[in-house]
Computed example of a mutant assay.
Amino acid sequence: MRMRAALAAAALAVTATACQQVAHAAEDPVAAPAAKRLSKERGGLKTAVFAGGCFWGVEAVFSHVKGVTAAVSGYHGGTERQASYKLVSSGVTDHAEAVRITYDPAVIRYDQLLRIFFSVVADPTQLNRQGPDVGAHYRSAIVPMSAEQNAVAKAYLAQLKAAGIWDRPIVTRIERAQAFYPAEGEHQNFMLKNPRNAYILRWDAPKVKALKAMYPGVYSARFLRD
């Protein structure tokens, strides 16, 4: 267990050269620091929920992380009756487009997932939007699924705010876990199914490239499937 954790930590090392190589990405990646408060999760597979704008890109990035065994796009919060792409994307519901991932903490820790999220997935300074997508349903949020995840998330957010990495205030929120409704089938594995889609090429493919360049040790070339 300790050896695998040490290998995972080493794999997340970021080099200045790698950051320069991905500086052309649609949204520039940021070399978020390693967490000081490490996750202590034990006992098999865990789940985590992240909201970071359009779920296509969030799912695509985490789908390429070693130790992640499933990544499902969906809607967090709100009601089941309103959990549809048409309604959520209209901005009339309380949902957030989000991704529920399943991961093995012996391979990739929760604090390392947070680091990836803030490095290449979402800009934590954008309020109720990400890139070209505007609305509260595109907010960036961390949804802890356990007391341990909550403690790690709070500590890491505090660490990032103290580090002063971004020029603007961090507005990413920690939200209470609510119901998660999987999105329609057409939105699952969207990047895998639509690699030449204009939105994917402009906004999401650069995030996956940034993951590979910045964290090659945890990057997996395979794409998770339903």
Rank of each mutant, 00 (worst) to 15 (best):
Y199L: 05
D204C: 04
A210K: 06
N197A: 08
E175R: 01
Y199P: 00
P182I: 04
E175F: 01
V171G: 10
W203R: 13
R176Y: 03
E175H: 09
R173P: 10
G185D: 14
V218M: 14
M191V: 07
A183T: 08
V218H: 11
E186K: 04
W203S: 15
E186P: 01
A177S: 11
L211Q: 06
M191L: 13
Y219S: 13
N197T: 08
K209T: 15
Y181S: 06
I174N: 09
W203I: 13
F180N: 07
P195Q: 07
N194C: 03
N197H: 14
Q178E: 06
G217N: 08
P195T: 12
P206Y: 02
R196L: 14
A213T: 00
K193R: 14
V208H: 02
Y215W: 12
K209H: 13
L192R: 13
G217H: 09
E184W: 14
K193F: 06
N189K: 05
R176C: 09
K212C: 07
H187G: 05
V208T: 04
V218D: 11
Q188A: 01
L192V: 10
V218S: 13
Q188S: 05
P206N: 08
V208L: 07
R202H: 15
E186R: 12
A179L: 03
R196G: 13
G217P: 11
P206A: 09
L201K: 14
L201C: 13
Y181D: 11
G217W: 05
I200Q: 06
V208D: 01
I170P: 13
A177Q: 08
N194R: 06
N197F: 09
R196K: 14
Y199D: 01
V171N: 00
W203H: 15
V208F: 02
W203G: 10
P195F: 05
